[in-house]
Each structure stands twice: as structure tokens, then as C-alpha cells.
């Protein structure tokens, strides 16, 4: 589904991505973890075309998407969400999701119907006519997810959709993400909430200093104590095992 090879990106003197290489296979739920500032969001932004890599290639769904603009990549089926939610603040929740749905149909009726269905599925059914600005953090995270999902993506890049949520809300999102995957959408997610990573992901990539330093099953990554301690800080391995 997705194959990044040697992706490098620097901001001035700062090397944010340093030859990052990874693959995400069809139909999987894959997690990307790493300490703050490791380059996770930068990697997603580069994959989705928001940043042009200095070098390296990005293959997606059988084609080369390196250097394509974001809208062209979204059109092909790779859609990202934002760590800092980016709602269309003064539009209603439904209109927000309709924007996503319009990617696959020019007809308003059809777009509205699909959008309403997606929004209900994400538990936004009773807020359809509220403005996006009026949503809580949890609501906004759901809205990010709903909008992206309404584009009928092949691959979703979810950047910390659980950050700032309480355990109940996290549980709900975990269930939702799993259902989205079961409907055939491949999931690549950045997450600091280890409990979610352990329960959702089939593969985990660890990034630190812009390099992918480990890759494996959640259990293998969690027990790779040296890696985890070195890059996630002291005690992280224990926390993951007990999550």
C-alpha cells in the first residue's frame, strides 16, 4: 500500500527526517511511535504531499507519488488528519464532512447523504448542525476522522487522534478505527497512547531523530527494551508492557 524509501527532509539546519524507510501493507493497522520532535508529523506531512522531501521516494497504491501536491495524493486515496485539529470552524459539522464526501461525487444530495452516514458512524449524529467551532476536543478529533473518512480513502494517516481524550473516549475511537479497517481502509497512525497502540496495531515503527530505528509487532517492540529505553525514555518499556 505504502512504501517510503530514504525519505529525508530538513528545515534549515535541522534534519527532521533522515532517510526514513518503511512499508505499510494492505489492510493493516500500523503505528508510528517515537519521542516528541522525532519527526512523526513531518513524516506524515511528507507522505501526504504537504512537504516535499529533499530526497527519497514515496510509493503508494502501485504508483510513485513523490512530489505530488496534497490534493492529487488525496485523490489517489491517501488522506491525513492533523495533530492540531483543523476544522472549518464556521461551517456546520455536516458541511465539514460534506467537503470530504465531495471528493468522490459532485452531487450535493449524494455528498450530504454519505457525509451524514459517516458522521453518525463516528458518533457525531446529534451535532450535525452545530458549528465545528462549538465541538469539544473529542468532537473535533472525531470530525477530523469523519472528514477524512468521507473521502473514501485507501490509506488513512491519523496523527494522534486520541491525544487529549479520556479513557472512555479513547476506547470508543479504538473501536471506530478498528471498524474502519475492517471495512477495508488501511490505517497508519501516530500515537502516544500506548494502550491504544498495543491493542490496535499489528506492526509498529519506531522513529527517533528522523530515522526509523525499529520495526516489529507491538509485543516485540515493547520487549526491545534497549530501543525503547534509549528512545522513549527510562521506564517506557515497562509502561508499554503493562499497558
Amino acid at each position: 500500500m505504502l512504501e517510503a524509501r530514504g525519505v529525508t527532509k530538513s528545515f534549515g539546519g535541522l534534519l527532521a527526517l533522515d532517510g526514513a524507510t518503511l512499508t505499510v501493507s494492505d489492510g493493516a493497522i500500523v503505528a508510528l511511535i517515537g519521542p516528541n520532535g522525532a519527526g512523526k508529523t513531518t513524516l506524515f506531512a511528507t507522505l501526504a504531499g504537504f512537504l516535499e522531501p529533499d530526497s527519497g521516494t514515496i510509493g503508494f497504491a502501485g504508483g510513485d507519488v513523490t512530489g505530488l501536491p496534497p490534493h492529487a495524493i488525496a485523490e489517489r486515496g491517501m488522506v491525513r488528519t492533523f495533530q492540531i485539529t483543523q476544522p472549518f470552524a464556521r461551517l456546520s459539522v455536516l458541511e465539514n464532512v460534506v467537503v470530504g464526501a465531495y471528493l468522490r461525487t459532485p452531487h450535493r444530495g449524494e455528498a450530504m447523504e454519505r457525509a451524514a452516514a459517516v458522521a453518525r458512524r463516528l458518533g457525531l449524529g446529534d451535532r450535525l448542525n452545530a458549528t465545528a467551532a462549538s465541538l469539544t476536543v473529542a468532537g473535533r478529533k472525531r470530525l477530523e476522522l469523519a472528514r477524512a473518512l468521507a473521502t473514501r480513502p485507501k490509506l488513512l494517516l491519523l496523527d494522534e487522534v486520541m491525544a487529549g481524550l479520556n479513557p472512555t473516549e479513547i476506547g470508543e475511537i479504538v473501536a471506530i478505527v478498528r471498524r474502519i479497517r475492517d471495512d477495508g481502509v488501511t490505517i497508519f497512525l501516530i500515537e502516544h497512547v500506548m494502550q491504544a497502540v498495543m491493542s490496535l496495531a499489528e506492526r509498529v515503527h519506531v522513529i527517533a531523530g528522523g530515522r526509523i530505528i525499529a520495526e516489529g509487532t507491538p509485543a516485540a517492540i515493547a520487549s526491545d527494551a534497549a530501543v525503547v529505553e534509549a528512545y522513549l525514555g527510562r521506564g517506557a518499556a515497562r509502561r508499554m508492557l503493562h499497558a
Binding site: T81, P87, A89, L91, Y102
Partner: peptide
């Protein structure tokens, strides 16, 4: 659709681009 896209662009260009606009 065109009008909805314009509203999306007015509200948040990055989000609009991410959704294929």
C-alpha cells in the same frame, strides 16, 4: 460543490488541501 470548496478554502486552506481540494 464549487461553493462548498470555496467555503472550505476560506475557513482552512490546509484542511481543504488534505481533503483533495
Amino acid at each position: 460543490r464549487f461553493g462548498t470548496y470555496l467555503a472550505a478554502i476560506r475557513e482552512n486552506e490546509d484542511a481543504a488541501r488534505a481533503l483533495g481540494i
